[in-house]
Design a protein around this nucleic acid. Sequence first.
DNA 1: GATTTACGTAACCTAAAAGTTACGCATTAT
DNA 2: ATAATGCGTAACTTTTAGGTTACGTAAATC
Lengths: 110, 110
Amino acid sequence: MSTETTDAFQALADRGRREILMMVAKEKRSINAIAENFDISRPAVSKHIKILQNAGFINIEEKGRERYCVLNQTGFSEVQQWINTFEEYWTAQFRSLENYLASNVPVSKK
Amino acid sequence: MSTETTDAFQALADRGRREILMMVAKEKRSINAIAENFDISRPAVSKHIKILQNAGFINIEEKGRERYCVLNQTGFSEVQQWINTFEEYWTAQFRSLENYLASNVPVSKK
DNA sequence: GATTTACGTAACCTAAAAGTTACGCATTAT
DNA sequence: ATAATGCGTAACTTTTAGGTTACGTAAATC
């Protein structure tokens, strides 16, 4: 795990990390609280957290010796933006389907 | 590259694969046509295509000995759905910000 | 019908991701 | 002051991802 990853998609590639995000979405959690819900060791979780943080999916709220994870919209937006890039393609597809239907499929008349 | 990958996020983890999707979004392309635009070998591209296909991002249109790649919305929708899962979280965040502002921040009066 | 083209696939190698244990270091509790 | 807790990190091992070359095969070209 090269924890310096900054790529949002790379960060989401791991199932465990996606589960972590879903857990944190339900409620703010400390590193240990997260680790308790996984089979992997705490240090492993710790690394995942760092990756998610660097990719902009979570923020850390330090409270004494505990570190709470909360969602950060940055990473999600990045992915959303990329998905939106293809919006144009789908609407074009849709329009050409419309054209096809308009010119080729007989409309039932009353 | 275990080409049996069916995971959408896993498929998007690779930069090259994301580029392939963007290329294909511009226009339908054969495997070789795609490979020409990359530094990697054709067999490598071939594997990437298979991964993208299995993950539901592209469909193959066979035309004689050529195989054309076209986008498939399935994979994109899967990712979109996952992103939408967190929608609830952000709106809750927004509402609590609203509440905070309403109760704590003095409104400038005229 | 021989050759070239457009692929897929198997076998293999390398590098990076993901995991572990074993520490160390603050912070909190006793 | 001492012990216990909540982490991060370094060093190491295993697994997987991504790449290659070397084939084979079916369709197009000559």
